Amino acid sequence: MSIQHFRVALIPFFAAFCLPVFAHPETLVKVKDAEDQLGARVGYIELDLNSGKILESFRPEERFPMMSTFKVLLCGAVLSRVDAGQEQLGRRIHYSQNDLVEYSPVTEKHLTDGMTVRELCSAAITMSDNTAANLLLTTIGGPKELTAFLHNMGDHVTRLDRWEPELNEAIPNDERDTTMPAAMATTLRKLLTGELLTLASRQQLIDWMEADKVAGPLLRSALPAGWFIADKSGAGERGSRGIIAALGPDGKPSRIVVIYTTGSQATMDERNRQIAEIGASLIKHW
């Protein structure tokens, strides 16, 4: 067993022997301040990774656009098919120029040779490549099948209805392509620590998230040296922004954090800054 596999296998073990965790309302004060600064709703939840206990939450059962955070769930569904012998990570998928959609920095470079399922998941999570996500959605049967996968996990809230990039439209009061912070946090925890996926697939999923290259201005910008984070960000229309993450000190994750916002007129930089400040408060009061 590799060191990384050992780390993920012992996530519940280490967490069980940690000192009790206590909620700190100071972080919620910052979440509410972010709402004021952005002029928009902000949803927040913080779960203990081992027990699933909610440590703090704000608007945990209000719907927010998922945006690209759905790509972690998508690759979880792909990995479940791999575990069941219905898919192979090494299978190569070929596609054409007509398949390319807006923001496809990886797939646009491989029109000639195609990409493997493993490479597509890596591109979808680490670079948020939209064509990679659409190609992977095709392998599982489309958005409705991802929703069905989530329902089978016990998540009857999260739903995907459309493809990239239309799913980022974020129309107010439109339930399409949305989740709730509580539902997303619980589902992410199941994917990373539950028995739904094999140990190898859980490790692969967290490795992809740990290698995320496009979430630097968010929670990662607030992390002290030595902290662990595996995350996936999302951005959408109407001032929408979000991030889902597993993080913790001492090089291992111990909490799940989900943050979503929508309806702001603020710039992307300002949305990023507010999420980073929430992260800084979380870490300060850990």
Results as ranks from 00 to 15, higher is better:
26 E>A: 02
27 T>L: 08
29 V>M: 15
29 V>P: 09
30 K>P: 15
32 K>D: 01
35 E>Q: 00
35 E>I: 02
35 E>L: 01
37 Q>N: 08
38 L>F: 08
38 L>M: 12
42 V>P: 00
43 G>I: 06
44 Y>I: 13
46 E>N: 10
47 L>V: 02
48 D>I: 00
48 D>G: 00
50 N>K: 13
52 G>A: 01
57 S>F: 11
58 F>P: 13
58 F>V: 11
61 E>Y: 08
61 E>W: 05
64 F>L: 13
65 P>N: 08
66 M>T: 07
67 M>P: 07
68 S>T: 01
69 T>D: 01
69 T>C: 03
70 F>Y: 09
72 V>K: 00
73 L>E: 07
76 G>A: 05
77 A>K: 12
78 V>G: 08
80 S>L: 03
81 R>W: 01
81 R>F: 13
82 V>W: 10
83 D>E: 06
83 D>W: 03
84 A>P: 08
87 E>C: 14
87 E>I: 15
89 L>T: 03
90 G>E: 13
91 R>N: 09
92 R>T: 03
92 R>C: 08
95 Y>E: 01
97 Q>I: 08
97 Q>R: 05
97 Q>L: 09
99 D>M: 10
103 Y>L: 00
106 V>F: 11
108 E>Q: 00
112 T>I: 14
113 D>R: 04
114 G>K: 07
114 G>M: 15
115 M>F: 00
115 M>P: 01
116 T>K: 06
117 V>W: 04
119 E>C: 14
119 E>S: 14
120 L>Y: 00
121 C>L: 05
124 A>W: 08
124 A>Q: 01
125 I>N: 15
126 T>M: 00
129 D>S: 11
130 N>M: 02
130 N>W: 02
131 T>N: 13
133 A>G: 03
134 N>W: 06
135 L>E: 09
135 L>I: 15
138 T>I: 15
139 T>Y: 11
139 T>W: 00
140 I>P: 11
140 I>F: 15
142 G>E: 14
145 E>F: 10
145 E>S: 09
146 L>N: 08
148 A>W: 15
150 L>A: 05
153 M>F: 15
158 T>I: 15
161 D>S: 02
164 E>W: 14
164 E>R: 14
165 P>W: 04
166 E>W: 11
167 L>H: 04
168 N>K: 09
170 A>N: 05
171 I>H: 03
177 D>Y: 04
177 D>A: 08
179 T>S: 10
179 T>L: 11
180 M>R: 02
184 M>L: 08
184 M>E: 05
185 A>G: 03
186 T>V: 02
187 T>S: 02
187 T>W: 06
188 L>P: 04
189 R>C: 15
192 L>F: 04
192 L>A: 07
192 L>G: 09
193 T>V: 03
193 T>C: 10
196 L>N: 11
196 L>T: 09
197 L>S: 07
197 L>H: 06
198 T>M: 02
198 T>I: 01
199 L>K: 00
201 S>Y: 11
202 R>C: 08
203 Q>G: 12
204 Q>W: 11
206 I>R: 12
206 I>C: 13
209 M>E: 06
210 E>V: 09
210 E>C: 15
210 E>K: 13
211 A>F: 00
215 A>L: 03
221 S>M: 12
224 P>M: 12
225 A>W: 00
226 G>S: 06
233 S>G: 10
235 A>C: 08
235 A>Q: 10
236 G>P: 12
238 R>F: 06
238 R>P: 08
239 G>P: 04
240 S>C: 12
240 S>E: 00
243 I>F: 03
243 I>N: 08
243 I>V: 09
244 I>M: 12
246 A>M: 13
249 P>Y: 15
251 G>I: 05
251 G>R: 08
252 K>W: 00
252 K>L: 01
257 V>G: 01
258 V>F: 07
258 V>G: 14
258 V>N: 14
259 I>S: 04
261 T>D: 11
262 T>E: 09
262 T>D: 12
263 G>V: 07
264 S>L: 05
269 D>R: 06
271 R>M: 14
272 N>F: 12
273 R>H: 13
273 R>F: 14
274 Q>W: 04
275 I>D: 10
278 I>M: 15
280 A>F: 01
280 A>T: 00
281 S>T: 08
282 L>S: 11
285 H>T: 02
286 W>R: 09
286 W>F: 08
